[in-house]
Nucleic acid binder design. Sequence first.
DNA 1: GTGGTCTAGACCACG
DNA 2: GTGGTCTAGACCACC
Lengths: 130, 130, 130, 130
Amino acid sequence: MFIQIDMTSEIPIYVQLKQSIIMGIATGQLKQGEELPSVRQFAADLSINMHTISKAYAQLKDQGFISVHRNKGALINAPEQYAADEKYLGVMAGALSELAAEALCRGISEEQWHKICMDAYAQLTKPEEI
Amino acid sequence: MFIQIDMTSEIPIYVQLKQSIIMGIATGQLKQGEELPSVRQFAADLSINMHTISKAYAQLKDQGFISVHRNKGALINAPEQYAADEKYLGVMAGALSELAAEALCRGISEEQWHKICMDAYAQLTKPEEI
Amino acid sequence: MFIQIDMTSEIPIYVQLKQSIIMGIATGQLKQGEELPSVRQFAADLSINMHTISKAYAQLKDQGFISVHRNKGALINAPEQYAADEKYLGVMAGALSELAAEALCRGISEEQWHKICMDAYAQLTKPEEI
Amino acid sequence: MFIQIDMTSEIPIYVQLKQSIIMGIATGQLKQGEELPSVRQFAADLSINMHTISKAYAQLKDQGFISVHRNKGALINAPEQYAADEKYLGVMAGALSELAAEALCRGISEEQWHKICMDAYAQLTKPEEI
DNA sequence: GTGGTCTAGACCACG
DNA sequence: GTGGTCTAGACCACC
């Protein structure tokens, strides 16, 4: 399984779970229509509380990434259902702005910033080159 | 004052404060040697508890951004004090990776990602162009 | 418990606590993966305020000595997490320099200084010989 | 002047002053009978509050390093007056123990510890070799 | 006046 | 249950 949960991280487990699944979709490991384990099953696999899985699923569903089926697993939605909208773009711009501000403070040049950003993207699409 | 605190945000106040100050340094509104208000003064200005300000200052101090003086407030350090190190680069790469993953998922192309990232940086250095 | 807090000392309680825990790791009484009490439990044990313990834990976490878990207490990290870096070596050299200066002033010879330093180290690794 | 005061340091100024003077004695820059400026003069030289100088002098006097003359300067005492006693040895052993504990934790070997300690001493007696 | 420490009590997110 | 955040008020060292 490509899901990686770090129980010692300060990032909430349900957030890590969401990020793992989003990362899975981004890298193509999870495709449209693919099935995710049921809450109960997933909880057992990861030795995690059911409520935690449930919370992650609920939020992924809200964001359009998955459809949850009662008592069954969850299905990855079609990309159209979670295409970037204005709201998302605004949130992401804000997050990038924070990162860019600290980078600029710490002496990262525009060229370095460019490289770091593009590397982060390329790593997802062409992992073999990393 | 350019500090903006959103008391309804889920982001802790002391984190918002840290980010505001880092943003101020990045945009050149806060320069080396410049003074920050005393914790009591700042607390009164923002209608926030003294200890919350103190926590933000303590963490900025640990990261090298400011020096806390004995009988004055706090001073912005020289850029050398908080230059990027390996640890910081790793943390930032991880954060960017998360953002890039969601962007890719949501159909942001490499060109769009490039634009968004560079805009975030440019906005800090050339605000007049925004 | 091997933790000793002197409420009358001028050394802040949270610093004493940090030193006690570092001492515990150094002497092998606290090993990787070992659990530390929860902040509430520890506070009750030592008759100290919760927040004081919390501050010590937070700083030990920042320095890499422990990981604070979500629903457990804190765990001692692997030694790699807190291996000496340049910054630490600089700080320690400064501290030793102060001690050496006073020792030299007070007529401690190089041989005596050598003995005192090595005793301090040996006391941690071979307590039976003391 | 060999006195170095860092107004941004978290170490109290009067402690820095004491350390500077002790360092001066250790390195031979201040010899028995040599005169230190008056409190008033010193305060003016360093742009520091008189009370701060006074506090440093008082403590140095208590420890036997200097003799303070009313309305005049202070004289460095004879080495015999501040030779190491049992109490001092105990305090120093404790301080070294703390440093050694952290060093051991952080993977400093006995050989490295030896080198670092002896370097700190040698730096005072043979500065030219550094 | 300043920041730092300690205590106390409340609320919240997480699991 | 856990730790994290915020508020509040007190005391202290430093300058």
